[in-house]
Amino acid sequence: MNAKHKTVFIAFSSQKGGVGKSTFTTLVASTMHYRLGYNVAVFDADFPQHSLMKMKSRDLAMVMENESLKKLAYKQFTTINKKAYPIMQARADSVLETAHEFLSSSSIPIDVVFFDLPGTVNTPGILNALAGMHHIFTPITADRVVMESTLIFTQLLQDVIMKKGETSIETINLFWNQVDGRESTPLYAIYNQLIDQLGLSLMQSQIKNSTRFRKESEVNSKAVFRSTVMPPDERLMKASQLDQFINEFLKIIEL
């Protein structure tokens, strides 16, 4: 691999489960690799779930069982002329070394490596792994427990790890996920003000919540949203405002 090629390390990370870390890793990796022309790789270090490894197996099986998706996948891979991005299992305490070994042996230059990391600071090696990221993106929801956990975690990264200087972190970015238009607007305003007072970065993009976006669970579906082998359906991207998120995401990482 060309040693001068810069590979960006990115993690969707949070100390709270169920806020969308693995989902966003998949959505953004698939959009970049299959639709935008970037080469990406993913390391699943979220022991013991390793949900991305399992997701890829389910996605491949579903494509083979669904004629509509099989046709879409065939058209996709013959058009872009490259394979599905690799998802590799690793341990949090050695994932950085494993990633660098992979990059040094890769026959193609990798633009972005995504890391799906455990959601607890008690995991051995997790803080060192986070310190090795270039950019961290943290999904948040308008829930008091989620917010308290996330803000403490983000301040730890920003005020302890980043200020020590022994880190690759360039940005830490919070963003609203599962936004329900029926929820009280003042609630978000209060949280936004708190985030600003703490000196944390909040993305302008907000991801809308809808059961329509869970298309990977529908066996007879003609479109997918979350998939490791295909990009999100463009109509669903627009409806969820994921398209706006991707644009802002690309500006932040400056590829």
Rank of each mutant, 00 (worst) to 15 (best):
T7Y: 03
Y38Q: 00
S168H: 06
W176C: 14
I172Q: 06
R235A: 04
I172W: 04
S22E: 07
D116Q: 03
L156P: 00
F24H: 14
M1D: 10
I87S: 02
V179K: 14
V229P: 01
M147V: 15
M32R: 05
G165W: 06
I252L: 13
F249V: 12
D111A: 02
S210Y: 07
R212E: 11
F249E: 12
G37P: 09
E248R: 07
T167A: 09
V121K: 10
K56P: 05
L202M: 13
P232G: 07
K54Q: 12
A90Q: 04
S57I: 15
A239D: 13
G181S: 15
V113C: 02
L157M: 03
Y188S: 02
L36Q: 13
F213P: 06
P231D: 07
K21W: 12
D59I: 08
K251N: 04
Y188W: 14
A239H: 11
M230I: 03
A92R: 00
S217W: 09
G132D: 03
G17N: 02
P48A: 01
K21Y: 12
L117G: 06
M162Y: 10
I161C: 04
S94A: 08
S240H: 12
G18Q: 04
F47N: 13
T228C: 04
S51G: 03
Y85H: 07
I161K: 00
L127F: 01
S22D: 08
I87Y: 00
L127V: 14
L72Q: 13
A73C: 02
E65F: 04
K75L: 09
E65M: 10
I253C: 08
F245E: 15
R226F: 02
Q206M: 15
M88Q: 12
P139D: 15
F245R: 14
V8Y: 09
L27S: 01
F115H: 07
R144M: 14
D44S: 06
P232E: 12
Y85C: 04
K215N: 01
S14V: 12
N81K: 12
N173C: 13
K21Q: 12
M162G: 01
Q155H: 11
T25W: 00
V112K: 00
I246Q: 08
A84L: 03
L72E: 12
T211D: 11
V113Q: 04
G18V: 10
I140E: 07
I207Y: 15
I110S: 03
L103I: 06
H100I: 05
T31P: 01
F102M: 04
F114L: 05
P232M: 14
Y188E: 09
G18N: 07
V179S: 14
E218Y: 10
E183L: 09
R226V: 15
I152K: 11
R182P: 05
V146N: 13
T31W: 02
V224C: 04
T167H: 00
F114R: 02
P86A: 00
S94L: 00
F115M: 09
V8C: 03
